[in-house]
Amino acid sequence: MLRSPAFRSFRMAAWLGWQIESNWTDPFLFAIYSIIKPLAAAGILVVMYRVVTQQAFDTPMFAYLYLGNAFYQYVSAVTTGVSWAVIDDREHYRTLKYIYVAPLNIPLYLFGRGVARFLTTSFAVLIIILFGVGFLKMPLALSTIQWPLLIVSLVLGTLMLGLVGLILAGITLLTARHSYYIGDAVAGALFLFTGAIFPLEVLPAYLRPIGYALPITYWLELMRRALVGRVAQAFPTFSALSDGQLLALLALMTLALGIISLVVFRWCERLARERGLIDYTSNY
């Protein structure tokens, strides 16, 4: 098993991804990049909340948006982490053709490349949450955290985001140089539809179906419920659904996404082989 192509693809790619991600000559810069930047983004949100609502930080609404925003960091990080590897290997390291000639499982290789970003983002998210609890009095107690739900939701959510990343990786394979920020772009475009910082009810009725169709929406709700159950359930969007039902929905959507993304990715690979794009470099 340890030597199976699937496992070694993932394991070695994770190792490589970590070497690349942590290849900062200056650990201080690395800290700024991976922690201070997301923390600053959270800070802007806090100020906006204060200015717009004039409310205190210990209200349910604050915990809702603060946690939603914190976990949303994963969306661009994981999708970019997975899809970026295509550009990085093809354009920068010029190794993509050698990766493709090797007996690897490419989807698992790409997932592996995303692991490092997942880890650094987890660290940043943890800091953001600790900051919220420590300085902003966000209502979160260790004793009420539902650990199993938290862990299962995080694993499932990460897998789901990785699968979105795989679709973006397929598109990247075909679009050559135009998709440098595809992960960030998708994360930015979906932000307002996922209930990250306000419940879906705030959206005009005709836009709400987008939110209900996105697995990210269910995943964010699950993460909030695992951390601050009572507070999260006070919001109307999913109040009719139990934790188990939400989890089942997320699992089903992830499964469907898994099938779709593998089909899409294989299809993109086939086109890339037909068009000679696997070793294409922009300054060809």
Partner: peptide
Amino acid sequence: RINMVSGGETSGYGLLTVRENLWMFAQFYG
């Protein structure tokens, strides 16, 4: 069962040492 090398290009992970680059690709082949 195969491998391939193209000349006239600089490929490889510059941040890894020669040995690390090669070791990693050896791992890719199990």
